[in-house]
Amino acid sequence: MNTLGPAIQKLTSSYAKDTPTTLKIIDGYLIYILLSGITQFVYMVLAGTYPYNAFLAGFAATVGSFVLAANLRIQTNIKNSADFKTISPERAFADFVVCNILLHFFVVNFIG
């Protein structure tokens, strides 16, 4: 337990120093999506699943957005550029947008 505090400190400092700003923006978005999904799930546990399609639509929207954002983060990370030589960050962002539009279409279709 003594080493845990310094380890976390080192992790946060290196994250703040070494991570590019674009990835930090995506990380902020990921945290936001994660919290949205968690709060919806807590509401479902507390209040029940009555408008079940609405809950499923909302929760699926957060899960899908999280997955898409995580993929965007992987593809735009400079350290991974060797794996995605043909995919520029802009191409990744275009994929992200197209997939999000499709996801939103399905979610809206499902919401009733």
């Binding site: 930090k24 923006i25 990380d27 902020g28 978005y29 945290i31 936001y32 999506i33 919290l35 949205s36 709060t39 919806q40 807590v42 509401y43 909302g58």
Partner: peptide, 13 residues
């Protein structure tokens, strides 16, 4: 509560 993560997002950005 569900909308509150927007504040987190804005704050982070």
């Amino acid at each position: 509560v569900v909308l509150s993560p927007w504040l987190v997002l804005l704050g982070a950005w």
